[in-house]
């Protein structure tokens, strides 16, 4: 049971492991949420970890040959194969008697929601013993901001220009993963590193497929100031746009942080990708967020009763 009080000041000291398995010479953009979350994730998992990264921003962030920004072994693989390559690595480790090593598949939203969904579904259905993290920056950022099925409704991207913005809601990836009845699925945010680290540690201790969905602000793609990334990651949670929760075995839903319920506009207005929104559209986003939140609360309550 994860107990995080909303009022706690989240002191980092004593909660986060001091190990640094990600090095400072990485190639992420200023204010990159994906770089932050890798640092926290590896702190949680420790050095007995092998990382698998498909095509995504992290292909670049990790550094060009012969360098690596990670102090754990790293296997770069093709776009749609994070889960299947990770499953193969785990199978190999098991047969070689090294099954205790954690295998971390680390993919963006394109590699998870879209092109890698089949392989991820396959691994989840087989309950392969991997931790799959989707760091979600809500578009194809590495290729220069094209819409993915993780892009929010009405957000600007280069393939959803403001005169023809995205007309579809963000795919509910957590529900898809929960429907696979995997032992553990959770959301996380770099604004709440203790919550993120605890969830990663919990995932590490569970056998089977674990899925961690992490919101990862992207200053170039979101058209936001780089110093606002942590604030945006916090607002995403506090506006209930990206609530923090976990799901065990696809059935036990638990909200791990009670959000303040700030207006969505607080979050939207800091990002150029939403600058074109009309008050009516913002109202509609608020309604959708409130309805989704009510559904999440109902699922968590159903579990509690």
């Amino acid at each position: 049971m994860i107990e995080i009080k909303q009022s706690s000041p989240y002191p980092l000291r004593g909660v986060l492991p001091t190990d640094e398995l990600m090095l400072s010479g990485h190639l992420a953009c200023q204010g990159c949420g994906a770089a932050l979350v890798m640092r926290y994730a590896l702190k949680a998992l420790g050095e007995r970890t092998i990382a698998v990264i498909p095509a995504c921003c992290w292909t670049i962030i990790a550094g060009a040959f012969p360098y690596s920004a990670l102090r754990v072994p790293l296997f770069h693989t093709a776009f749609e194969t994070a889960a299947s390559a990770a499953a193969g690595i785990k199978a190999g480790l098991e047969v070689l008697g090294k099954g205790d090593i954690t295998v971390l598949a680390w993919a963006g939203d394109g590699g998870t929601f879209d092109i890698g969904l089949q392989a991820l579904s396959g691994a989840a259905e087989r309950n392969d013993d991997i931790i799959y993290v989707c760091y979600d920056n809500e578009a194809y950022m590495n290729t220069g901001i094209q819409r993915s099925s993780a892009t929010p409704w009405r957000a600007w991207t280069t393939t959803t220009p403001t005169r023809h913005p995205k007309d579809e809601p963000k795919k509910d990836m957590m529900a898809i993963m929960a429907a696979h009845r995997i032992p553990y699925a959770a959301t996380a945010s770099p604004a709440y590193p203790e919550d993120l680290v605890r969830k990663m540690q919990k995932a590490k201790a569970i056998r089977g497929t674990k899925f961690i969905h992490i919101i990862s602000p992207c200053p170039p793609g979101w058209k936001s100031a780089s110093e606002l990334s942590v604030k945006l990651a916090r607002l995403a949670v506090q506006t209930k746009i990206f609530p923090l929760y976990e799901v065990e075995n696809g059935l036990k839903w638990r909200i791990t942080l009670e959000p303040k319920g700030l207006p969505v506009e607080e979050y939207l207005k800091l990002q150029g990708r939403f600058r074109h929104l009309s008050p009516e559209e913002i109202r509609k986003i608020q309604e959708t967020v409130d309805a989704e939140w009510a559904r999440l609360v109902a699922k968590a309550k159903a579990e509690a009763s």
Partner: peptide
């Protein structure tokens, strides 16, 4: 590993071989 496609079959073989199996 009873994978869900040949693409994943080869990806899994690649992962396994990369770890020394």
């Amino acid at each position: 590993i009873k994978v869900e496609s040949e693409h994943s079959a080869m990806a899994a073989c690649i992962g396994a071989a990369a770890v020394g199996a």
